[in-house]
Amino acid sequence: MSALNLQPHKLYHIYNRGNNREAIFYSPENYRYFLTKLRRYLTPHLRILAWCLMPNHFHLLVQVRERADLPRCSIDLRLLLSSYTRAIQSQYGRTGSLFQQHTKAKELDNNEYALACFCYIHQNPLRAELVREPAQWVWSSYQDYAGLRSGTLCDRAAAIEVLNLPTEAAQIA
């Protein structure tokens, strides 16, 4: 995986999917374990504004912290994915790559585009016909913004400010 080439204060849509579009999450425990790793490895460098874990891919909307150690951030993303891969390989007797080789980080260069990305991330389970309402998918930050859960992975205050989101949960849902 190449360096992400992130810049402080900027917003990015970071995503990757399973190699050959195969599943990367097989059980609720897998989703939870990935979120634990995400918190450990990426939150020191990035403010997570939105996230969604799908059966065969993931999406993150992030803002790079002012004093982020950017070379270390790329290393930590590799560690996140490789340690998660090793756990899945061990648990399910798999071999080979779990994720596609290159994780993408697309810069969101204006607030309108960033807000569209925020909505896109939360609508992913609906588009994939996994649920009828975004609130039904527990593996995204949608429930946190809709006031249905009090998750702490997202920096909701930063998202509200940066994306100009409504402060009332009912207006987001």
Rank of each mutant, 00 (worst) to 15 (best):
R21C: 01
P71M: 11
D69G: 05
E112I: 09
C117G: 04
L130S: 01
P28G: 09
R127D: 15
R72Q: 15
N30C: 09
I48D: 04
S74V: 07
V131A: 11
Q91A: 15
T85L: 07
L70Y: 12
R94M: 14
L60P: 02
Y41D: 03
R65I: 06
Y120T: 07
F58C: 03
R78L: 04
I24R: 05
V64L: 10
I24H: 03
P44I: 05
T43S: 14
L81Y: 02
F99S: 04
N20C: 05
H57L: 03
R32H: 14
E129K: 13
R40V: 03
Y33V: 00
P125I: 08
N110K: 04
Q89E: 10
E112M: 07
T103G: 06
C73H: 09
A114D: 01
M54I: 01
R132H: 12
T85C: 05
L60E: 10
F99T: 09
H102W: 02
L38H: 13
D76S: 06
Y26T: 04
M54G: 02
A135I: 14
T85E: 04
T95N: 07
L80I: 10
L98K: 08
H45E: 13
V62Q: 03
S82H: 14
G96E: 11
C117L: 03
Y113D: 08
Q89T: 00
S97L: 10
R65P: 06
L79M: 13
I75P: 00
F118G: 11
A114R: 13
R78Y: 04
F99H: 04
C117T: 15
Y41W: 14
